[in-house]
């Protein structure tokens, strides 16, 4: 079970990294797709949220290898009148919220349509 969860988290993180290459807006799209695909899994939205956070953390680490990410945090923090650490947290929270909320909403729709399908099938059988 745990291994299964871990695998899905890794997979969704990779998907989120790829989505980020398109643009930030692809994160909620990926989250929604994941939420819809895993609508039977109650942990799906959380996995999507964590996946987004892990993906952006990884991308930030990649940026950090390539240049002075701390300068970015300090400068953006100064502009937004907040501490640099808050800029990191804000970035990750933004990704996490997009991932979890989009997955949650899409899962609800997916379940709704699944139920409609199930009921349709049941009435056909009846």
């Amino acid at each position: 079970m745990m291994r299964h969860l871990l695998m899905r988290t890794v997979l969704v993180s990779v998907a989120m990294v790829l989505a980020s290459m398109i643009g930030w807006w692809a994160i909620p799209v990926a989250g929604a797709v994941f939420g819809a695909l895993t609508y039977r899994d109650s942990a799906g939205p959380v996995v999507a949220g964590f996946g987004a956070i892990i993906a952006w953390s990884g991308l930030l680490m990649y940026d950090a290898i390539r240049g002075p990410v701390s300068n970015v945090a300090a400068t953006v923090g100064a502009v937004l009148q907040t501490k640099p650490i808050a800029v990191y947290l804000l970035t990750l929270a933004f990704a996490g919220l997009l991932g979890i909320c989009s997955a949650l909403v899409s899962r609800t729709f997916a379940r709704f349509f699944a139920r409609v399908r199930e009921r349709g099938a049941e009435s056909t059988e009846a």
Partner: peptide
């Protein structure tokens, strides 16, 4: 926030181009 905080194309990208 989207285009700003995006770690690929957003403001963080400036770390990669700073030098």
């Amino acid at each position: 926030f989207g285009p700003l905080l995006d770690p690929v194309h957003g403001v963080w990208a400036l770390a990669r181009t700073a030098t």
